[in-house]
């Protein structure tokens, strides 16, 4: 009986497939739009799992060295600019809200509004990168970029324990992790811009792959939330290390 039921479903599906022209929203390998959407969703989550593992290795390295050299992390992190980091945190959080609105309006089929909110999200992303660029530029100027020109000096007021533990190499290790992790995150922001901008234009133009269903937009938003969440971890780990 169960089989008969599936059979019935299949007949409906195939009818739906037949109704679409070659260039309909459903790709040839799928039976119908539901199957396609569900595949996108599973695929996106599987992709995010790989992303978590990708960052995970770096977080592990961070944990190992923070545990090994707590004073180095405390002293080196004082060189980071908390107000700028905080601003960036707010920018990303706001952008996540914008992207939620974009999905919301896409669901209601208000295409112009959806595209607008996407563009605003992209604007936030640019803002984030510009601020990050200023931060990096400053580090470059004062010689906190790992490499041959790296310098690091402890303030005279530092505790004797700190003076013992902190070396230039270890401070460089901190900044190495800082640049590796925020840099990788920055690349993800850039990729986010490269995904959301064309998506917004496609929605405006009414490209059938993205307007007949809101799932592609929701998947892009999911990615954007992930980028946001990574920053939510990075910010306190680098900028807000407790001082004792």
């Amino acid at each position: 009986m169960a089989i008969e039921a599936t059979q019935g479903a299949v007949h409906e599906h195939t009818a739906a497939v037949a109704a679409q022209d070659e260039h309909g929203p459903v790709h040839h390998q799928f039976e119908d739009i539901e199957q396609q959407n569900e595949s996108y969703i599973v695929g996106m989550w599987a992709f995010l799992v790989t992303e978590i593992m990708f960052f995970g290795a770096l977080f592990l390295a961070y944990a190992v060295y923070r545990w090994k050299y707590p004073l180095v992390f405390i002293e080196a992190h004082k060189m980071l600019d908390i107000p700028l980091g905080l601003t960036n945190t707010f920018i990303l959080l706001t952008s996540s809200f914008f992207v939620v609105l974009a999905v919301h309006y896409h669901k209601l089929n208000r295409r112009k509004l959806a595209a607008t909110w996407l563009f605003l999200t992209v604007l936030c992303a640019f803002g984030f990168l510009v601020i990050k660029g200023f931060e990096y530029g400053h580090k470059f100027k004062v010689g906190h970029v790992p490499g041959p020109n790296f310098t690091f000096e402890l303030p005279a007021s530092a505790s004797p324990e700190a003076k013992e533990q902190v070396t230039v190499e270890r401070a460089q290790l901190f900044f190495g992790l800082y640049f590796a992790m925020t840099g990788l995150h920055g690349i993800h922001v850039l990729v986010g811009i490269l995904i959301l901008t064309p998506l917004a234009f496609m929605i405006l133009k009414g490209h059938h792959h993205v307007v007949d269903d809101y799932i592609p937009t929701e998947m892009a938003a999911l990615y954007w939330h992930f980028v946001d969440v990574v920053w939510i971890f990075l910010f306190p780990l680098f900028y807000l290390i407790p001082l004792h």
């Binding site: 599987a46 799992v49 790989t50 992303e51 593992m53 990708f54 960052f55 995970g56 290795a57 770096l58 390295a61 050299y69 790992p146 490499g147 041959p148 070396t167 190499e169 270890r170 460089q172 290790l173 900044f175 190495g176 992790l177 590796a180 990788l184």
Partner: peptide, 30 residues
């Protein structure tokens, strides 16, 4: 999907260390 990203980033760190000498894995550099 669970393992490959980890080795990818690890190998990337080896390259970074080779190019910039930041000492993530070299005991001489901490």
């Amino acid at each position: 999907i669970l393992g490959t990203p980890v080795v990818a980033i690890t190998l990337l760190l080896v390259v970074v260390e080779r190019v910039l000498h930041i000492g993530i894995f070299d005991p001489k550099l901490g």
